[in-house]
């Protein structure tokens, strides 16, 4: 199988590392070669962060480049827009509609663009946008946005739900498992 590419983007501290860990585990269990590339250190402090997940028969590069992502999973709207050029022509964006102002917007040096979902769609990109923060809160914690997004992403993957559940059981700490399963279901069925 040709290598498939998933980018997970967001703001440092939003929990993208757990999402990539889950995906990595899931895809390895399906027998794929997998590479996951993360960002640690300074960028994690509220900066724009990106994690690359690649899988297929044999994966070489650990990173995803412009025009290569089959999926962009975004924790925040501006970040989805920032990485849009990385999407494949027929790629799919799954994004939370949450909006977190970056410092240049907070200080008034820049504007947060309006109607980003519509503008991304106008380029021909397929955009699945949902209020993941509300769904995470419904599941019991604002920190469960990552699992809401994974639930939504599972729509587009041809994998049995059982495989996702097993990956969650392997990765998520036991005391948060029920909450995260609920978040996953809410995202999936949204």
């Amino acid at each position: 199988m040709e290598t498939k590419n998933v980018m997970i983007v967001g703001v440092g501290g939003q929990g993208s590392l757990l999402a990539s860990k889950l995906l990595g585990h899931l895809l390895l269990e399906q027998g794929y070669d997998v590479k996951v590339s993360e960002v640690h250190g300074m960028s994690q402090r509220g900066g724009s962060v990106v994690t690359y997940v690649r899988y297929g028969d044999k994966v070489a590069s650990p990173v995803i480049d412009r025009g290569e992502a089959d999926y962009i999973v975004s924790f925040e709207l501006l970040e989805a827009a920032r990485w849009l050029s990385y999407l494949k022509p027929d790629g799919q964006i799954v994004t939370s509609t949450q909006r977190i102002d970056p410092m240049p917007v907070i200080t008034g040096a820049a504007q947060y663009p309006e109607e980003l979902v519509e503008k991304m769609r106008a380029t021909g990109a397929k955009v699945d946008a949902l209020d993941c923060l509300a769904l995470a809160n419904e599941a019991g914690s604002s920190k469960a946005v990552n699992l809401v997004l994974m639930g939504r992403l599972s729509h587009y993957f041809d994998l049995p739900e059982q495989a996702w559940l097993e990956a969650m059981e392997a990765i998520v700490p036991a005391k948060f498992l029920e909450l995260n399963k609920k978040a996953f279901e809410l995202g999936k069925n949204a």
């Binding site: 827009a81 920032r82 849009l84 410092m103 917007v105 663009p113």
Partner: peptide
């Protein structure tokens, strides 16, 4: 590989305290 272009100024998001 080329990607699609969004005709919009995307403010940078540098790390912050």
């Amino acid at each position: 590989h080329d990607g699609r272009v969004l005709d919009e100024a995307i403010p940078p998001r540098p790390p912050v305290m």
